[in-house]
C-alpha cells in the first residue's frame, strides 16, 4: 500500500502537467536545480546541530540524565530527546533521528516511531519566532500554549498510531 503512494503521486502530477501542455521535462530540471540552494543552506545548520548534539550525547551526559527518567519512559527512553528538541529546531530532529536509526536500526519499532514523530510534527518554536518576528508581533497571547499542546498531542498520537500499525 505505502509502496503505491509515491508512484501514484508522481504519475498524477506528471499526467496533469502533460495534459496541460507544460514543458514537463524542463520544469522538472528547473525545480531540481533549486535543491542546490537548499542543500547549501542545510549544511551549516546540520553541522552546528550535529556538533552540539553529538558532543552532548557522546560525553555521556545525556545517558546520565536519561538514566533518571528511564523508570518512567521504559523502552521509549531514546525517543525523549527527539520529542524535546523537535519543536525547537528541524535540523536537530534530523540529527537525533539519524542517531536512533544508527543505534536501533531503521526498521525497528523505535526507528519507525521516531520517523513518524519527526514526520508528523513541526518546529513550533522556530515557526512562531519567524512568523511573529517578521511582522513585529510583540504579544503572542495563547499561541505558544496551543502550538505546544498540539505538538504533545501529535507526538502521543504518532507513538500510538505507529505502535498499532507496526507492532
Amino acid at each position: 500500500m505505502s509502496n503505491l503512494i509515491l508512484p501514484i503521486i508522481v504519475l498524477f502530477i506528471v499526467f496533469y502537467g502533460f495534459f496541460r501542455k507544460v514543458d514537463i521535462y524542463d520544469t522538472f530540471v528547473d525545480g531540481a536545480k533549486e535543491s542546490f540552494d537548499m542543500v547549501f543552506k542545510l549544511f551549516p545548520n546540520l553541522l552546528g546541530m550535529i556538533l552540539g548534539i553529538n558532543i552532548f550525547i557522546k560525553s555521556g551526559f545525556l545517558s546520565f540524565v536519561l538514566g533518571f527518567l528511564k523508570p518512567i519512559f521504559g523502552v521509549f527512553i531514546d525517543l525523549v530527546p527527539l520529542c524535546l528538541m523537535r519543536p525547537i529546531s528541524g535540523s536537530s530532529g534530523i540529527v537525533l533521528l539519524n542517531n536512533i536509526f544508527s543505534s536501533y536500526g531503521v526498521d525497528s519499532l523505535i526507528g519507525r516511531m521516531a520517523s513518524v514523530i519527526q514526520g508528523s510534527t513541526d518546529t513550533t518554536l522556530y515557526i512562531l519566532t519567524l512568523y511573529f518576528g517578521s511582522v513585529g508581533i510583540k504579544k503572542t497571547r495563547y499561541a505558544l500554549k496551543v502550538g505546544l499542546l498540539a505538538d504533545l498531542f501529535g507526538i502521543v498520537s504518532a507513538i500510538v498510531i505507529s505502535y498499532f500499525i507496526f507492532k
Binding site: 500500500m1 509515491l6 526498521d107 519507525r112 514526520g119 508528523s120 498540539a150 501529535g154 498510531i161 505507529s162
Partner: peptide, 22 residues
C-alpha cells in the same frame, strides 16, 4: 530501510489528528 515509504500513512494519520486537535 526495507520499506522507506512505509511511514507515510502513519505520518499522515498522526499529523491529521494533531492538526484537528490543534
Amino acid at each position: 530501510s526495507i520499506n522507506p515509504s512505509g511511514v507515510i500513512i502513519p505520518c499522515l494519520l498522526a499529523s491529521l489528528s494533531s492538526t484537528v486537535f490543534g
